[in-house]
C-alpha cells in the first residue's frame, strides 16, 4: 500500500492488534475485522469452495456472506464483527 487508506485528520481511538492467518494486523478500536483487513491490504478473506478463487467483502453490511472468516473454528461475517485486541482470525472456507 502506497498510502494509508484511513482518512487523514480524523480523530480515532487507539490502536489494537489482532491476527489473521497468524499474521499480526493493526486496527483502530471500532473497526470491523473486514475494515481493518481491507486497510491492511488483505482483501481476500476466504477461497471459493469450488475453484479456490479468492473472495472478499462485497456488501460490507452483513447481507452477502462473502466475507466469511473463522473465529475459533466457526464462520462469522468479517464485516459484522469488531476487531478486538488479541483476537485470532482465520480465513474462511475450507479449514
Amino acid at each position: 500500500m502506497s498510502r494509508d487508506l484511513r482518512m487523514d485528520g480524523v480523530l480515532r481511538p487507539p490502536e489494537i492488534t489482532f491476527t489473521f492467518a497468524g499474521q499480526p494486523i493493526s486496527a483502530r478500536q471500532g473497526e470491523t475485522i473486514a475494515m481493518a483487513l481491507w486497510v491492511a491490504g488483505q482483501k481476500a478473506l476466504r477461497n471459493s469452495s469450488k475453484d479456490g478463487a479468492p473472495r472478499g467483502v462485497l456488501c460490507n453490511m452483513g447481507i452477502c456472506y462473502e466475507c466469511l472468516v473463522r473465529i475459533e473454528g466457526a464462520p462469522v461475517r468479517a464485516c459484522m464483527v469488531l476487531a478486538t485486541e488479541g483476537l485470532n482470525v482465520e480465513p474462511g472456507g475450507k479449514s
Binding site: 475494515m35 481491507w38 479468492p54 473472495r55 467483502v57 462485497l58 456488501c59 460490507n60
Partner: peptide, 14 residues
C-alpha cells in the same frame, strides 16, 4: 467475484 469489487453501499459504509 474478485476482491476489490464491492457494492456502492459497501463503499459508503467504508
Amino acid at each position: 467475484t474478485l476482491p476489490g469489487v464491492i457494492t456502492a453501499g459497501a463503499a459508503q459504509v467504508m
